[in-house]
C-alpha cells in the first residue's frame, strides 16, 4: 500500500514538473540567433577580404559551416579570433604573423592632386565610401571608410594613403587612471 502511495506521489510529481518544464520551454523560449549572424556581429565589418572571403558575412557563414579557420580575420586580430573560437567552441589558433593586435583606426585619403579619376578604387571599395566619376577627382567619405585598404593596390597612380584620424577635443578620451598610474611608475 505504502509502495503504491510512493509510486503515485512520484508519478504525480514527475507529471507536475514535466508540465512545468514544458510550459517554461514554451513560455521562455529564447530565439537563438543563427550562428552565422552571431559571428557576423563579432567581425569588424571592414569588408576587407583579407580572410579570403568577399566580405565579413561570407566569412561568418563559412565559419558557421565549419569550412574556415578562426584565425583569418586580420583587422579583428586576436580578440576577434578568441571570440569566434569561443562562440564555435573550437581551439583558438594563433594569428598569422602580423596583426595580433588590432591596428589603430585609419582611413584612406586620396591625394586629390594626383588622382586621375579612373574609378578603379570606387569599384574596389566594399562599402561605397569613395565618391567620384570617370575623369573626375575622387574623394573618400571619411565617416564611411572602414580602413580595409582595398583601394590602395588598385590605384594606378598610387595616390591613396592610409592616415590616422587626428583626435579632436570632441573625440579625445580621458586616459584610464589605472594604466596611467602604472605607466607613471
Amino acid at each position: 500500500m505504502s509502495a503504491l502511495a510512493g509510486i503515485l506521489i512520484f508519478l504525480g510529481l514527475s507529471l507536475a514538473f514535466g508540465l512545468l518544464l514544458g510550459y517554461a520551454a514554451v513560455r521562455f523560449k529564447v530565439e537563438g540567433d543563427p550562428v552565422a549572424e552571431l559571428i557576423d556581429k563579432k567581425l569588424p565589418q571592414t569588408q576587407c577580404g583579407q580572410c579570403g572571403y568577399p566580405g565579413c558575412k561570407p566569412y561568418a557563414e563559412a565559419l558557421a559551416k565549419g569550412e574556415a579557420e578562426v584565425n583569418l580575420c586580420i583587422p579583428g586580430g586576436e580578440p576577434t579570433m578568441l571570440e569566434i573560437a569561443e562562440l564555435l567552441q573550437v581551439e583558438p589558433k594563433p594569428m598569422q604573423a602580423e596583426a595580433t593586435e588590432p591596428k589603430p583606426p585609419m582611413v584612406a585619403l586620396i591625394n586629390e592632386d594626383l588622382c586621375i579619376g579612373c574609378v578603379l578604387c570606387i569599384k574596389a571599395c566594399p562599402v561605397d565610401a569613395i565618391v567620384g566619376a570617370t575623369k573626375m577627382m575622387h574623394t573618400v567619405i571619411k565617416k564611411e571608410c572602414t580602413g580595409c585598404e582595398l583601394c590602395i593596390p588598385v590605384c594606378p597612380v598610387d595616390c591613396i594613403d592610409m592616415v590616422f584620424e587626428q583626435p579632436t577635443p570632441q573625440t579625445w578620451k580621458w586616459p584610464d587612471p589605472k594604466s596611467a598610474a602604472e605607466s607613471a611608475q
Binding site: 558575412k57 562599402v127 561605397d128
Partner: peptide
C-alpha cells in the same frame, strides 16, 4: 559605424 559599414556593404552587394 560597424553597423553602417555592414549595411552599406550589403546594399552594395
Amino acid at each position: 559605424l560597424t553597423e553602417q559599414a555592414k549595411q552599406r556593404h550589403e546594399a552594395r552587394q
